[in-house]
Amino acid sequence: MAQSPHFFWRIARQSGAVVSILFVLLIWTLFSALNIMPQAILPSPASVWSATVEMAENGTLGRDLTVSLSRATIGFSIGTSLGVLVGLLTGRMALMQVLLAPALTLLRPIPAIALVPLAIVWFGIGEGSKYFVISYTVFLTVWFNTHHGMQYVPDIYLRASRSLGVSRAREFLTVIIPAAAPYILAGIRLGVALAFLSLVAAELSGASSGIGYRLQEARQYIRTDRMFSLLIILGILGAVADVIVQRIGQRLVHWQQG
């Protein structure tokens, strides 16, 4: 391959996701054109597109996006701030670690959707329960990564900073946190993905707008074209958010290569 890089092959390798998306679209178009499955089960790309246009034109898409994105953003922000804060504490303070780390670790396997009933009892069907479910899931993952990152700060950095006689506060802020930053950012990146996952879980019950709610509504009318449209939009939002966080992360931990 490296010996005779075929022109089209080279283009395909450099195009990232584009070729892959076109390929899947092609298969999808073929499948629906062959009419193997009824339109109501597998809608054609064209009908998914027109469903998207329809939702955009009647204003629901814009409203749903705004509502869902603000839920994801608020939940993510609360979860990430708490996760980093608690992770910094449990990662470097023995007392906090003993008191909190085992309990938080036990909470991790509980899926977001299982929390929805409890969230509704505690916070009602308003925005509070959505923020709770999203921030809870994001919190646990960000906490876990921060906590472990703080524990893997190389000993040599601590010896160097102690022999250079900086204060504990300066050591914490300018040695320990930067050393743990790659782990913290990996946790935040996972947190972004989880914010979208738990967003839908939170909206599947007790919401009256949002992408997740619209999916549920589409089920009642068997509008698979809308479902496809909404699912694709969710995928794109998640991917874009991931790229943004990754780019910011690379800037922040510029010293970390690969």
Binding site: I156, R159, A160, S163, Q256
Partner: peptide, 12 residues
């Protein structure tokens, strides 16, 4: 003062 074999410079 201490000098380490692995330099122990802060990469940030």
């Amino acid at each position: 003062g201490v000098i380490f074999q692995q330099y122990a410079l802060f990469p940030w």
